[in-house]
């Protein structure tokens, strides 16, 4: 996930990471991780605070003004919840495709690459 602002809106943070910032904490699916005071204010997320709590690495680009935030690692596993993330993908003909548009059906998501 790339950010050009370490105080993004809660909506932008949720869209990029799948973690919604709520009064209960940072939530994904049924899982909520309590957050310390100051983690968010006025609909904006303090990425440094939330990232530390969730075990997300924050790596700055040398050029400045750009950061990459890694996925959560606090659980020690790649998945911290079974709730599937809502990927926004692109079809071969360039159309947007949301994984959640298939909600209600069983799906096998196959990862392959031609390299």
């Amino acid at each position: 996930m790339l950010l050009d602002d370490l105080m993004p809106t809660t909506a932008a943070f949720a869209a990029a990471t799948g973690w919604k910032i709520e009064s209960r904490g940072a939530c994904k699916g049924d899982l909520c991780v309590p957050l310390p005071d100051g983690a968010y204010r006025e609909e904006r997320v303090d990425v440094a605070v939330v990232a530390e709590r969730l075990g997300m690495a924050v790596v700055p680009a040398e050029s400045g003004g750009l950061w990459a935030v890694g996925p959560e690692s606090f659980s020690g596993r790649a998945l911290s919840t079974v709730a599937a993330p809502d990927l926004e993908l692109q079809t071969f003909d360039g159309q947007p495709f949301s994984l959640s548009s298939l909600r209600g059906t069983r799906m096998v998501l196959v990862a392959w690459a031609p390299y």
Partner: peptide, 8 residues
């Protein structure tokens, strides 16, 4: 190749 199964 890898796959993930996601239910309804």
């Amino acid at each position: 190749p890898n796959a993930v199964w996601i239910d309804e």
